[in-house]
């Protein structure tokens, strides 16, 4: 029972974790991209389309990442090169993504997809209890964990990560030191796009192998909330994503067990958790200042 529960939580948490990790890097560079939902849904449609056209879920996953990246590039050009407002552009990107994915996906509606198969290591996957949890997941689940480590090491243990954080905390100083603020932000936004695309492709290739318009159903927004919930640290993204996933799945179990608890209240819990964390971190001023990118959402125009 516990095993089954954990297995379900993993699939619910993985798309959130992938998209939120990408957005975390974007926000650490000082850019607020509210278009996660749009990039995710583009990843989902591209992943699905390429999977059933080529028969390879792997190519589908790659296509999902590529589609997310291309969509984010549009946002990058508008906000970084043309210096448009990031909030408005991000919202527009979400609407754009939802509309365009519906158009692209029209002929794929009602076709069964091909599922990305989970790993099967003889001997290990069959182990009782932990076998399927540890050794029976699909590649994207493992990738999501690897990315937590990679992003952590990159941000806090590498020179490039230091530059990225400097750009996010004080773009004028970073610029004065000779770093290209715009270039760093372009790369960060593209990384965020690719990760959101992966999260979307996970939905249409691994989670529920099907395509329908709007299939992300708000997960991009949850990923955005997660970044704040995690107060911009990768490890907490992991906790947040699994907490959100666990609460969602738990409420279904509670209902099926006939525990007379209003389902609407349980659906609300993840968001309550975000508000509580926001209150908690804003109470601790030093921690807030330490982790929040100071230039978040501010446009940068080089003075020369």
């Amino acid at each position: 029972m516990l095993e089954a529960f954990i297995l379900t939580v993993i699939t619910a948490a993985t798309p959130l974790m992938l998209a939120a990790l990408g957005e975390l890097v974007v926000e650490r560079s000082g850019v607020l991209n509210l278009g996660v939902e749009g990039m995710m849904v583009m990843g989902a449609v591209a992943g699905f389309a390429v999977t059933i056209s080529t028969g390879s879920p792997w190519l589908g996953v790659l296509a999902g990442a590529a589609a997310g990246l291309l969509t984010s590039l549009l946002f990058a050009v508008v906000t970084l090169t043309l210096v448009a407002n990031q909030v408005a552009s991000g919202l527009a990107l979400t609407m754009f993504g939802l509309g365009l994915s519906g158009l692209i996906g029209e002929s794929f509606v009602g076709q069964p997809g091909i599922k990305l198969q989970p790993a099967n290591i003889p001997g290990l996957t069959d182990l009782p209890v932990v076998g399927r949890i540890l050794f029976g997941q699909d590649a994207l689940v493992y990738l999501s964990f690897v990315m937590i480590v990679v992003v952590s090491l990159f941000l806090f243990r590498s020179r490039a990560g230091l530059i990225l954080r400097a750009v996010g905390d004080n773009h004028s100083s970073a610029h004065a030191l000779g770093y290209s603020v715009i270039k760093v932000r372009y790369l960060a936004v593209m990384f965020g796009g690719a990760m959101a695309g992966l999260g979307g492709a996970y939905l249409s290739v691994a989670y529920t192998p099907l395509w329908v318009e709007n299939m992300t159903a708000g997960r991009g927004w949850i990923a955005l909330a997660l970044v704040v919930f995690a107060s911009w640290t990768p490890l907490r993204i992991f906790f947040g994503a699994y907490l959100f996933g666990a609460v969602t799945v738990l409420q279904f179990h509670a209902q099926a067990l006939g525990i007379g608890f209003p389902s609407q209240f349980l659906s609300m819990l993840p968001y309550v958790a975000t508000v509580v964390v926001l209150v908690a971190i804003s109470g601790n001023r030093r921690a807030t200042l330490f982790n929040t990118p100071a230039c978040l959402g501010q446009s940068f125009v080089p003075d020369r």
Partner: peptide, 24 residues
């Protein structure tokens, strides 16, 4: 066993609800 997902349309949640029901 009845599970309300509070949505007409959310493939992910529908799949999770189905898994929870089968698990039970």
């Amino acid at each position: 066993k009845i599970v309300w997902v509070n949505s007409w349309f959310d493939p992910g949640k529908e799949a999770d609800a189905a898994k929870a029901l089968f698990d039970q």
